[in-house]
Design a binder for these strands. Structure first.
Lengths: 130, 130
DNA sequence: TAAAATTTGTTATAATATAACATTATGTAA
DNA sequence: TTACATAATGTTATATTATAACAAATTTTA
């Protein structure tokens, strides 16, 4: 089963839930929604989430402690993430902008240090809420 | 007292602690360290933190749930923040880069939406850990 | 098929954060 | 200066987010 799609049973259940959601899901919301599928305890959820984040299937929205499915084909191993977050309706969109990614991926600070990973969160009002 | 520096008693105590720290401080670490000054309960800490964040005196490092003093003179009302985070020693530095700030502040997504605020976290190895 | 690595199940608990309410202090404007 | 509004404080309780620790089962690899 693992080879087929690279996701274990619990990982698949949890990924499916996040993937079909139109909004970021929190760990305990996920837990509540998968209990009927036999996932009963927080560690089961967090372990799946950890793995899904590591493999780039989902991203964590740090400012919300919530998880979204990756919508960008280019981030299998997710090291360059950007999101827009609506401060009114809480909607989150992943931003896939090649120029932005290039700019930030090649950014080096004043000491000349480059970074292998970044996460960017924009805040404002989405189209609907404006 | 409030007029002098715009910070209340608890806010000042907590700001001083964060400001003199060389690393990000977590809320309960702060709580532990200010109990001798009469701040005894989490809400007192969180309220001061909230206010200090709002006024730009400190920033929250979202990926660490920890707080640092603002080192950038240009972010009194903090709407454009960037940090470098060492994945080995956990050191955090605020990045003050006018070009970066300008680039991100004027960024507009594919729908043409602009954002009024952003937070960027870079991850990698600091000079020492490299 | 045996060993290694990964995933799962489970209980308990740690760490982070807020609700709610009473009180006091400070700022503002008549 | 009084009264009104706003902000800050103190307090108890509780909600939310996340991990430790250990036993067992499954899958992968060699």
């Amino acid at each position: 089963m693992y080879k087929e799609n690279n996701l274990s049973k619990n990982q698949q259940i949890i990924f499916d839930l996040i993937n079909k959601s139109s909004e970021p899901l929190k760990a305990y919301t996920i837990l509540f929604n998968v209990q009927k599928k036999g996932i009963k305890a927080p560690p089961q959820v967090y372990r799946a989430l950890d793995k899904l984040v590591k493999t780039g299937k989902i991203h964590k929205i740090e400012s919300k402690n919530a998880f979204v499915a990756c919508r960008s084909s280019s981030c299998e191993i997710s090291k360059a993430t950007a999101f827009s977050i609506c401060e009114s309706c809480e909607m989150v969109d992943e931003i896939s902008d090649a120029k932005l990614t290039k700019y930030l991926s090649s950014f080096s600070d004043k000491k000349g240090t480059k970074y292998k990973r970044f996460n960017l969160e924009f805040f404002g009002l989405c189209k609907k809420c404006k």
